[in-house]
């Protein structure tokens, strides 16, 4: 009797497993490497996965968290990822070194890399207002490239300002040792603003784009090989992903998006997450009519010019040839 029950149970198990396998058999498996950790800045990627948009498109996408050490371009070349997120400077540097990659969409329409400073200090209305200030820069980071471009544009020399190398620790900014501090507007920017406002201090953000310096941030990329040989898969993936981003940036879906992000984001502070989502929305979809993923070709060209002038690349790569929206 007992034996019979075991056989029935085993049969049911095998049937269920076979059914599950068959239901996934038609799905195309893909790996998608993000640039940063799971948080609201990747809300659209998380939402597309959580709401089953990839599955609807017949795709089984594994969304992998990024970090400073993980590089989507390397993973595309090594075959560990099919799609990824990379910043424009990474893309241009890779093209300069012979990598074969294609940009499919530009996520951030406004670069989140900005500078925060206290409102009790003179507001930066013109670039000349930077003179005499102590400015934080991540040496080797793209904020250094952007700030150097600003200095060149404004005719500011190193004698006119004080530059301090910064890292992840905000203490020098809190202690007012550094006046203007580089932040990602939608993550660290929100945290710092919140902390200082709790202490009764207001803050401003210095956005280089307001002064004509457009340096593109994160974009969706794939390898040239995938783009050429699997164009249908690329179309399906992009349609599902951008659908996820459109839905995630819709204020009506905010509570739902926050629940899905919270499942993967380790930060326990719900209110901060909400504020970060609002800040992300302003960068991804700056106006109601803006279409998410639109590639700003002029901004890409300007990014390339900046990198060329800063000797970050050896020769022009003509990045516009690799932008396929």
């Amino acid at each position: 009797m007992m034996k019979k029950q075991i056989f029935i149970l085993l049969g049911v198990f095998l049937f269920t497993a076979a059914l599950a396998a068959a239901s996934h058999a038609d799905e195309i498996e893909l790996n998608y490497r993000l640039k940063w950790l799971f948080n609201t800045s990747v809300a659209g990627d998380i939402y597309a996965d959580a709401k089953g948009y990839f599955k609807e498109a017949g795709l089984k996408v594994t969304v992998r968290e990024g970090s400073p050490e993980k590089n989507a371009i390397n993973e595309l070349e090594l075959g560990y990822a099919d799609f990824g997120v990379a910043s424009a400077d990474q893309v241009i540097r890779a093209l300069d070194k012979g990598a074969k990659i294609i940009v499919l969409a530009q996520l951030f329409q406004v670069n989140p890399m900005q500078w925060i400073y206290r409102a009790d200090q003179p507001e930066i209305k013109t670039l000349a207002d930077l003179k005499g200030r102590n400015i934080g820069i991540t040496f080797g980071g793209n904020d250094e490239t952007v700030m150097n471009t600003i200095f060149t544009k404004a005719g500011i020399t190193k004698k006119d300002i004080k530059i301090t190398g910064v890292r992840f620790d905000f203490t020098p900014f809190f202690k007012r040792e550094v006046e203007i501090w580089p932040v990602y507007r939608n993550s660290q920017g929100v945290i710092l603003k919140d902390k200082l406002e709790k202490e009764g201090e207001k803050v401003y953000f210095f956005n280089p784009a307001d002064f004509g310096v457009n340096f593109v941030a994160n974009s969706i990329i794939t390898s040239e090989k995938t783009w050429k040989s699997r164009s249908e898969v690329v179309k399906k993936f992009m349609a599902a992903l951008l659908k996820g981003w459109e839905a995630a940036m819709d204020p009506a879906n905010e509570p739902d998006v926050l629940i899905d992000v919270k499942k993967r984001d380790k930060d326990p502070n719900d209110e901060l997450r909400r504020l970060q989502l609002i800040a992300t929305r302003e960068l991804i979809k700056p106006s109601a009519s803006a279409k998410i993923g639109t590639i700003d070709v002029d901004a890409w060209k300007q990014t390339e010019t900046i990198m060329l002038n800063e000797k970050q690349i050896k020769q022009p790569v003509h990045v516009e040839k690799f932008l396929k929206n």
């Binding site: 400073p68 991540t138 040496f139 080797g140 980071g141 190398g165 970050q312």
Partner: peptide, 19 residues
């Protein structure tokens, strides 16, 4: 590598930033 502002570890960090 973690947080200093001098030395070869710092230079490696910068090189890593720039792949």
């Amino acid at each position: 590598f973690i947080a200093a502002n001098a030395g070869i570890g710092y230079s490696i960090r910068i090189a890593l930033y720039q792949s």
